[in-house]
Nucleic acid binder design. Structure first.
Length: 338
DNA sequence: TAGCACCCCTGCTTTACATCA
DNA sequence: CCTGATGTAAAGCAGGGGTGC
């Protein structure tokens, strides 16, 4: 029996980038600065130049949060005090580093950009997201603090006293973000760093968040698949149990028949065949069955792998018909010898 | 070749939040 | 409206495998 468990998907070209325009232009209420420069000095999103057409070449920045280095007089939020903002600086002494925080590499650079880069658009757009999230009128200013804290990144959890006093808040992804991530997951269940960065930029999330989302998503998929497999195996078990019961019954009948018909030796042989792959029975009766025994044997039918059921081997338990493979000539020879 | 650092993953757990009775 | 139970999802954490130096 073969169980086809497919937990993964066939790798396909990563096409979620094509959706950027749709998201950007629709109801998310934000645009992205795809012109940012990555750590390697390459323009991120260069490979998606086609999608960027129609939008401005310059990064768009919404000055809704004090992360961006805008003159204080230009932002309406400058009257709000965000004590953690000074912690956003990369390399700030006294920070506690998260163990999962990459100490080098693209992601860190990108995180740092998202947190402290003058061109970062993250915090601004998170504000937009928070507005959408406040559909029911909850979480207004609270949301602002949540998003800001989320943007601080793992490495800026810092200032332990503040951290302790402020309970860990969780960023809730918007429906749009989740849907986009779902679509991306359908395309590909794992991401390479470039794809992660691109997704992060498109959704204005940190790469770490994208990574975590995909990890959790894979875990959910696996869990669901496990449940499905479990159900399938249950049914297989029931089927096999039923078949076993039936075979046992037939075996009893055959034994009873054998006992009642001592001259079974002259019955013709019946060849049963079993497909090796599916183990289904394809009865191949070689001769016309004239007795109940032979008829019964053909229904036991077990199996295509050449189970030759003759009166002489009828008494053998049909444990694994694959083990039985006798040609009529062999059986006749054996009979003659005995 | 061993040791180390780093990256990425899985598996499990924790925690914040939403929902509902 | 409040409250506690419960489910869900984001994030934290530990540990292992792969890779490069």
């Amino acid at each position: 029996m073969e169980l086809a468990l497919s937990l993964g998907e066939t790798p396909k070209p990563f096409t979620f980038l094509d959706k950027s325009q749709k998201i950007v232009g629709n109801d998310l209420g934000f645009c992205m600065a795809l012109g940012e420069t990555s750590a390697e000095g390459k323009t991120i999103g260069k490979e998606n130049e086609g999608e960027n057409k129609g939008s401005s070449d310059l990064p768009i920045q919404l000055d809704l949060m004090p992360f961006a280095p805008v003159p204080r007089s230009q932002t309406s939020f400058n009257k709000l005090h965000f004590p953690w903002l000074t912690d956003n600086l990369v390399g700030e002494p006294g920070k506690r580093l998260d163990v999962n925080r990459r100490s080098r590499g693209v992601e860190e650079v990108d995180d740092a950009m998202a947190i402290s880069s003058p061109n970062s658009t993250v915090s601004s757009f998170q504000m937009d997201f928070s507005i959408y999230r406040n559909g029911r009128g909850k979480r207004d200013f609270e949301t602002v603090t949540v998003e800001c804290e989320a943007d601080r990144g793992d490495s800026s959890r810092a200032s332990d006293e503040e951290e302790n006093s402020m309970a860990r808040k969780k960023l809730r992804l918007t429906k749009e973000q989740s849907a986009f991530l779902e679509d991306s997951f359908k395309e590909q269940s794992t991401l390479n760093p470039k794809q992660k960065l691109a997704l992060a930029k498109q959704l204005n999330l940190r790469p770490r968040q994208i990574e975590v989302w995909f990890q959790n998503r894979r875990a959910r998929t696996k869990l669901k698949q496990t449940e499905v497999d479990c159900e399938y195996l249950k049914k297989c078990c029931e089927t096999l149990t039923e078949e076993n019961r039936r075979l046992q019954k037939e075996l009893q009948e055959l034994r009873a028949l054998k006992a009642s018909q001592p001259f079974y030796m002259q019955l013709p042989a019946t060849t049963l065949s079993m497909c090796p792959s599916c183990e289904r029975v394809a009865t191949t009766t070689t001769t016309t069955t004239t007795t109940a025994a032979a008829a019964s044997a053909s229904t036991v039918s077990g199996r295509t792998s050449v189970v030759t059921v003759t009166p002489s081997n009828m008494g053998l338990p049909l444990v694994n018909p694959k083990l039985f493979s006798f040609s009529p000539a062999q059986i006749h020879a054996q009979q003659a010898a005995s």
